[in-house]
Write a protein that binds this DNA or RNA. Sequence first.
DNA 1: ACGCCCTTGTGAAAGCACGCACAAAGTGGG
DNA 2: CCCACTTTGTGCGTGCTTTCACAAGGGCGT
Lengths: 231, 231
Amino acid sequence: MTPRTPRPRERGIPEATVARLPVYLRALQGLNERGTPTVSSEDLAAVAGVNSAKLRKDLSHLGSYGTRGVGYDVDYLIYQISRELGLTQDWSVAIVGIGNLGRALANYGGFGTRGFRIAALLDADAAVVGDRVAGLAVRHIDTLEDVVRGEDVAIGVIATPAAAAQGVCDRFVEAGVTSVLNFAPVVLNVPPGVDVRKVDLSIELQILAFHEQRKSDGHAADRAERTGSPT
Amino acid sequence: MTPRTPRPRERGIPEATVARLPVYLRALQGLNERGTPTVSSEDLAAVAGVNSAKLRKDLSHLGSYGTRGVGYDVDYLIYQISRELGLTQDWSVAIVGIGNLGRALANYGGFGTRGFRIAALLDADAAVVGDRVAGLAVRHIDTLEDVVRGEDVAIGVIATPAAAAQGVCDRFVEAGVTSVLNFAPVVLNVPPGVDVRKVDLSIELQILAFHEQRKSDGHAADRAERTGSPT
DNA sequence: ACGCCCTTGTGAAAGCACGCACAAAGTGGG
DNA sequence: CCCACTTTGTGCGTGCTTTCACAAGGGCGT
Ligand SMILES: NC(=O)c1ccc[n+]([C@@H]2O[C@H](COP(=O)([O-])OP(=O)(O)OC[C@H]3O[C@@H](n4cnc5c(N)ncnc54)[C@H](O)[C@@H]3O)[C@@H](O)[C@H]2O)c1
Ligand SMILES: NC(=O)c1ccc[n+]([C@@H]2O[C@H](COP(=O)([O-])OP(=O)(O)OC[C@H]3O[C@@H](n4cnc5c(N)ncnc54)[C@H](O)[C@@H]3O)[C@@H](O)[C@H]2O)c1
């Protein structure tokens, strides 16, 4: 027995790595569908759009699953990443706010394919409650607690207007949900131990606008000098 | 020319800061609507969900817009951040792929309010082309180049199935678009100078699942031991 | 069986990002 | 006019992330 365990990988995977594992997973699944049996870090990195050294370091946090001189076994790596991400079990998801976005999410097929099950759709509007969306009846928001417990909801998705989001979030947390995905443009306040991730369209557009402006700034002088005609 | 300029703040704002400016902006607009004339870094940071030192350092990259002993003038700071992000001009956006998600995006009111104008909706499906969505007629994908040039599209949004995304992206780039927002679950390949941002639902869920699994792992033993009855 | 060649896994270094803590700067009261 | 108080702007230490570069490891051809 080794008295002082070298601890080749302890239970801490860097957050930046976790965020990239799903990208690798998708790239691997693409390779798998095309029948590729093994892949080198160089090739996989190219498909995933990252630096190969980064890819190798990321994977090294999971263990030594590669073969030197050959690369990684695609099937095996898919399994290992899936296991690490917790995709070998099914997660129940509840969506609150069945408007434009909520309906799109509910109708989106990409959930079920990867271990996520839409367990329930909830809304506050009586005109919406009872509608059938993607094969599920929309339930009233008042049943949230029952739904969370009954369906063992692990992840709550919030697609309500901004004003309602914090309230819905509080109810999710109260009912025991510790992972929330928020589409409403507000900063949610949650107690420690609860994870919130946000998807914010406006922020993405504004970041793009910032860089777009920079590009024009840099060349504006050149362009203005050269051009006599309006843009 | 001065070889070593002191350069109090050069034209480089850290990417992490850029990503937070939209959050600050939204927080400030919220304060503005409630009539708050000035705000301290402490208070604004609380609303924006960040550390106050980080907020101050972020804002310091734009310039010295605060008043010691008082705080920041809300209106003025809104203006400065908007200007820095390039929101004082209007940006034309074209959405390709008018399915579940594309329709939700088109119907989303949050665009126009902040300097983004939906200039065109495009799709390849003859059954969809001609539909009126959010007051715009869906145009055929073949007109993409005309639309980009005619409407001066600065940002292309891709909401097609994954298989079509790279092709649409190439056409955007070819037509001169240098900012792309991608909702399809693929890594887009673009030449240097083109910015791509992606919004990927599955990745967010998988990251949540990872942490959720960790939480259970840690406490699973405890819980299983202790629990016979529900809480 | 052996050695060549390819690819992994990982030290080490450089680059960012974060947050503390405090001097500088400005306000408002006396 | 001056002082006490508040809050900004930032220097600095710390930790995380990325990237380079290469030794160690393993397959494959001969
Ligand atoms: N549509 C988009 O493309 C888009 C893009 C980015 C962000 N968002 C954000 O996503 C959210 C939803 O957008 P949307 O376009 O679907 O809005 P929407 O108005 O179409 O839908 C909102 C739904 O939430 C329901 N709702 C309201 N209050 C509720 C409550 N307290 N509990 C439960 N349900 C409640 C409403 O009945 C409605 O069905 C908004 O916060 C919006 O800012 C939407
Ligand atoms: N719906 C969601 O909530 C959701 C969530 C996450 C990701 N996504 C992704 O967003 C994308 C769109 O999802 P969706 O649910 O709206 O799909 P959808 O099938 O409802 O819509 C796709 C649309 O794209 C059009 N299209 C196909 N090929 C095209 C081409 N070459 N040029 C132009 N248009 C083309 C189709 O005609 C269709 O109208 C997909 O890549 C999906 O994976 C969707």
